[in-house]
Design a protein around this nucleic acid. Structure first.
Length: 224
DNA sequence: AAGTGATCATAA
DNA sequence: TTATGATCACTT
């Protein structure tokens, strides 16, 4: 999945039309249309569904720190759905630059820039359904409403404040109403630099921001 | 069953 | 080593 046979969408209408065209397809059907193999074991291909959708919809950001649809400023996220139609998992947003995030403002932060425009694509994700048979849902183009944005900002300020104060030991997945901090690395031996409370550089786990399902559940309900 | 921590693949 | 894409799996 390295080529980009589908050109980037010129506008939102084109993007939405493409998303609508794949809604209802199974992952196996879509992969077949794109000439992509369906992995036998998702444990070794955790990002496969997301990458399949990037290909199908014409995302052009690759692994740059830009919205997936660079021209439209829209981020693409797949949303794994359980049998009850609710999100199965939190949603990864971005890794946290522990040494420099204290110099970001919310308004120009990576989190806000990623979340201000998101195209959510629900995907069946029950382990009981074979990967190729899981179906794609109707995409939702979402912008945070005032209340959602306010809570995200509050979470971000709280967490960023802790990082700035060097409170890495206190930092855990328990903080934040919508925004959550969790490890984000290859494994538990993967380390990066941060500050401790004395202001010294210390090695610590890389962390990322994630969205709790309490928020994505709301987003999902917008369509029904 | 949720919630939180741990982990896997790939490209540049 | 950084970024991208997430799901796995253990604990509570």
């Amino acid at each position: 999945m390295t080529d980009i046979p589908i050109l980037p969408p010129e506008n939102i209408m084109v993007l939405q039309a493409r998303a609508q065209a794949v809604a209802g397809l199974s992952l196996g059907q879509l992969a077949g249309e794109l000439g992509v193999d369906v992995p036998a074991d998702q444990r070794k291909k955790k990002g496969w569904v997301g990458q399949l959708l990037e290909l199908a919809l014409g995302a052009d950001a690759r692994n740059q720190s830009l919205p997936d649809f660079t021209r439209l400023g829209i981020e693409l996220k797949t949303l794994p759905i359980n049998a009850q139609g609710k999100p199965r998992e939190t949603t990864f947003v971005c890794t946290i630059p522990l040494l420099t995030i204290q110099y970001q403002q919310w308004e120009n932060s990576q989190v806000w820039n990623k979340l201000r425009h998101v195209l959510w694509v629900p995907v069946e994700a029950c382990p009981s359904i074979p990967l190729a048979e899981r179906r794609l849902g109707k995409a939702i183009l979402w912008c945070p409403n005032a209340q959602q944005a306010a809570i995200l900002q509050q979470d971000w300020l709280e967490i960023t404040g802790m990082i700035a104060m060097g409170e890495l030991e206190l930092l855990s997945g328990k903080w934040g109403q919508y925004l959550q901090v969790r490890p984000k690395g290859l494994n538990g031996r993967c380390l990066c630099w941060g500050y401790n409370q004395a202001g010294d550089k210390v090695q610590t786990l890389p962390r990322g921001f994630y969205l709790r399902t309490s928020l994505t559940k709301q987003i999902l309900q917008l369509q029904t």
